[in-house]
Design a protein around this nucleic acid. Structure first.
Lengths: 129, 129
DNA sequence: ATGAACCTTCCAGTGCACGGGAAGGTCAAG
DNA sequence: CTTGACCTTCCCGTGCACTGGAAGGTTCAT
């Protein structure tokens, strides 16, 4: 498939796909005689993985590290385990912070929802936050 | 308190404090006769709020919106509730994605931890990922 | 064979959240 | 009265993840 089709299929842009290739996230695909990029089907799975990682806040460098280990396989297994453990720790830390923020925002929202409309007259400071 | 003390007290830098002021996150403090910034104590609480939001992945623009509403208080209460609800939704979506990523990374890590060392001979592709 | 819709490389710019460092003013200690 | 640590503004640089646009080649339908 050509770059435009892959971009369409994965909900991204041709610009981003070339950028990912230059950044080492996508392996250089084969080319047609005219020089067009010709992607195989597993590119979509790879891009889905990248998209999931991005949506969860991983950097491209982190995602590239995981993919590189997967691709080369020459890294010692201990290194793979360590890398995955580090990613798990990072994700857990992020989850903890996100849960904490959710709690405070939820509390603010509850007090705003439970307040009487009359307790917030115009021209007075709104103390929901 | 002066800008250096405030930076020290909140674990940030004078550069960041001036940047926050220019970005509308911190109100311009009073000045000493010499032109030095002279912060009141509630600046530390405000910066703690900013720090919590940042740690959880909110942008400065989102934090500024919340702070602006709090400061002016002239926004209708419905707007405040809506803003908080949107933040909650965004946080929940981020949490869901982060949980999903955690699950896949945890699975990879488990299979790596449970694998026999001998099943990963050198020069063979490591299929932990 | 011509026009639209693709594709190529390359270079430059964007938005975010700062950080570096210059050039100069201020303040307390010795 | 000088030294050093602070402060001021101003402007440029950085890293990340793209995004825009120029200049040109390819493919395909009409």
């Amino acid at each position: 498939m050509r770059i435009g089709e892959l971009a369409e299929a994965t909900g991204t842009t041709t610009k981003t796909l070339r950028f990912y290739e230059a950044s080492g996230l996508l392996p250089p695909p084969t080319r047609t005689p005219a020089g067009y990029r010709d992607y195989s089907d597993d590119a979509t799975a790879r891009l889905d993985f990248i998209r999931r990682g991005r949506a969860a806040g991983l950097t491209l460098a982190q995602i590239r590290d995981i993919l590189t280990v997967r691709d080369t396989g020459r890294a010692p297994c201990g290194h793979v385990r360590q890398l995955l453990a580090e990613q798990l720790d990072a994700i857990d830390a992020q989850l903890a912070e996100l849960h904490a923020l959710r709690a405070t925002v939820a509390q603010l929202h509850d007090s705003a929802a439970n307040a009487e409309p009359d307790t917030c007259p115009p021209a007075q400071v709104c103390r929901y936050l």
